[in-house]
């Protein structure tokens, strides 16, 4: 399985690989990514500490910002784009995300119900 034995024709991209760009373009990509990431981070920290916004919206805003920032990282640092060559990488990512979503969401949902119906030992103690 050596590199030479494979036809160079395949249009596959490795995860993290960029399509052929000049060094300048690539550096620019990282600069933009870094700037966006810092901006989103700053916004998160600002929102978490401020009294200026409606308080109940803060958790939602933080989650949204976090997801946005993860997206920025994926696109600018890990170079997972949705171009046709990247389908396989993105599909794997989608499967991973689905599982993460199911596990975290499922756990939170299930455990909330269990806690409501059958609280852990020390909570029962406290209720008595």
């Amino acid at each position: 399985m050596s590199d030479q034995s494979h036809a160079p024709t395949d249009h596959d991209l490795a995860p993290g690989e960029e399509e052929q760009h000049s060094v300048g373009t690539r550096i620019l990509g990282y600069v933009v990514g870094l700037a966006l990431a810092l901006l989103l981070t700053a916004t998160s920290f600002f929102i978490a500490g401020t009294d200026l916004v409606w308080q109940p919206s803060i958790p939602v805003a933080l989650i949204v910002l976090a997801i946005a920032q993860m997206g920025v990282h994926l696109v600018f640092f890990l170079h997972i784009t949705t171009g046709p060559d990247n389908t396989n990488n993105v599909l794997a990512l989608a499967f991973g995300l689905l599982v993460v979503f199911l596990v975290v969401g499922g756990t939170v949902w299930i455990m909330a119900h269990l806690n409501a119906n059958m609280p852990p030992m020390d909570q029962i103690m406290r209720m008595q």
Binding site: S2, A7, D10
Partner: peptide, 21 residues
Amino acid sequence: HPGPASKRIVTAYGFWIFLLS
């Protein structure tokens, strides 16, 4: 299907799968 992918792609893809896990 054009045949097996290059080593670079195979390695990175495997690692990508590891990262997902």
